[in-house]
Design a protein around this nucleic acid. Structure first.
Lengths: 337, 337
DNA sequence: CGCTGGCACTCGGTATCATCGACTGCCAGA
DNA sequence: TCTGGCAGTCGATGATACCGAGTGCCAGCG
């Protein structure tokens, strides 16, 4: 653990570096803290902080830059989420005031909002369909031996799948299958696959089984919609085009993003909901220079999705945390309605 | 119009520049063409090409670089789509062999394919729902006075909208509304909004009207899905991080991308389906250093969507055109199935 | 004993300068 | 009309020097 003065020095270094992206020297710190000590004293403290792994020097005769460990300490002990500035609060309020029903659209727009608030890339994970229960199942013919299965879930999402039939079915049979399936699946989760009773009509039962087969296929359901927005803003935070390329490549792999968000969130264990993962902690090499701030959004206490931002390790943590906290909270509230 | 030798020189310059990204000098051209002329002669030709606006020199004592006009001439007169290399052909074949039913997934995956083939960003425009006709309409209750309207269209897409009701409706009434709507809307396009006959049941008619109101709302229908993939690959083509940022910012604005694709395609007027827009021709300042190659994909002769790539103006046009042509053709064929 | 001012030292960034080489344009001659 | 030759341009590269921000260390002070 760090004594008060070292903590103050570390805080000053992190803040200054976040703002300027330049290594910060002892003189700056001495000037910007209320410690009332000389640069020489600060130097001694910084030397210790470096030995302990909180800071590094890019080279002799340069100032110090925080390490991942330094940011970690800053986030855990030296700052709290903070509040949004007035214009941003206004922006959030306005956004949610005119937010309308369409879930996907809303989640997508949320990435724009969050990325606008923070100047980093925004990530939003949609409601997982695991918890959702079936409201209705419908089988609609599309053409020769092709039908589409449409399942409406209680959380307002729609799952669909194309199904190939082994024979031609008339509208009545498809309708009957729809009714039968709806009757027996309503209220259940798509994940549990208890068989449903036969109807007695053999062809109909074959059709029903085919539909159940499609719905049980895992491929369909773990596609957890993830929305990424504002990647261009994040690009501005790096000056090596290669870094930008690598980060973009990661963001394009949805499953990586999803598992990343999951892991960060789980890492929280118990907290105020917000959690932060910094640089190497993310465990993904191309994101070594990035940090992620995430929070779940909840409906009636149940976490149903995740919002977050991805920025450079030298991101403005207090501001990003504030934005993520506010947006996740309001998003949950807004979806409940 | 250019005489044969000037054309040959221009072609050589474009090819070399595409490959090396370095200004190309007269000696290279003399060496790489079968014209059998000396560098001095080439210099004279290049001077003319520059005066005519096909080439420019970044500075005196540097080689020449093609202008937009130079690329345009190259694309229109000096090259033809060309063929894909064997491994890439293989890649395409493999992709479409294991392509499965889910439309959205497929279009999304197509961006990966195309971007992999070309090393540029890929753009895919989904089937517009304008042409599609209704197959089924269903109204499903979600909770107090909230219902979801799900419309299955003939092209295999599903439109949905949340609707707020002015009163509580039971499942029977919702079912009745579904049947009534399906019966009268089936086969029509969502775009035409001829009123449908009343049922005699006043409450039911109010419900039906409410649904029709939602479906008529244009907001829902012009959201033309556009899929963008491989933006990271495109990033590698530029060396200024700011250029990358600006291009990304454009790609994030779906409506810009959509109208861009539309315009490029319309510009084709009459052609082999492929069309190319180069640099300033795109009419979007941040894309001044980019070109787009697009082609429609068709089902039974009817164009229903668009695929394309976006790369730097010095993109490998023959290869990009080949890839876009092949993918659009196969995609159309694959969707018909 | 901790803090401070002073001091020697380091080293990246910037500016200056010369050199090199890849080009070009032009011209005279084949 | 083409070509070889030649003078000239100008960016890229590399050497050199200098500056300044910043450090570590130390002796002295409260």
């Amino acid at each position: 653990m760090l004594d008060d003065r070292k903590a103050a020095v570390l805080r000053a270094v992190v803040r200054e570096y976040i703002e300027t992206a330049q290594p910060v020297g002892s003189a700056h710190v001495a000037r910007n803290t209320s410690l009332g000590v000389s640069p020489a004293t600060v130097r001694n403290e910084m030397a210790v902080l470096e030995r302990e792994g909180y800071l590094i020097q890019p080279h002799t005769s340069a100032g110090r830059v925080p390490t991942d460990k330094g940011y970690r300490f800053f986030v855990d002990h030296l700052t709290r989420p903070g509040a949004l500035a007035a214009p941003q609060r206004h922006q959030v309020r306005e956004f949610f005031a005119k937010a309308h029903g369409e879930l996907e659209q809303m989640l997508h727009d949320t990435t724009s909002l969050l990325s606008g608030l923070t100047s980093y890339a925004a990530l939003v994970l949609g409601p997982s369909s695991e918890r959702a229960t079936v409201r209705s199942v419908q089988v609609v013919g599309l053409g020769d031996r092709v039908a589409m299965v449409v399942v409406v879930l209680s959380n307002g999402t729609v799952e669909k799948a194309v199904i190939e039939l082994d024979a031609e079915f008339g509208d009545e049979r498809l309708g009957a299958a729809s009714s039968h399936l709806t009757a027996h699946l309503e209220g259940t989760s798509l994940a549990d696959t208890t068989p449903i009773p036969a109807t007695g009509d053999e062809r109909l039962d074959r059709l029903v089984d085919a539909v159940l087969g499609v719905l049980a296929a895992p491929a369909d359901r773990d596609h957890e919609q993830v929305y990424v927005g504002g990647a261009s803003r994040m690009a501005a935070a790096f000056d090596a085009v290669d870094t930008v390329r690598k980060v973009l490549a990661i963001l394009e792999q949805q499953y990586v993003v999803v598992s990343l968000l999951r892991e960060v969130l789980d890492g929280d264990a118990e907290g105020h909901g917000l959690s932060v993962s910094i640089g190497a902690e993310l465990g993904v090499q191309p994101l070594a220079e990035c940090s992620i701030v995430v929070a779940p959004y909840e409906i009636e206490g149940e976490p149903i999705g995740t919002v977050g931002v991805l920025g450079p390790t030298r991101m403005n943590y207090p501001q990003a945390m504030a934005a993520v906290a506010v947006v996740s909270e309001r998003l949950g509230r807004s979806l409940r309605a």
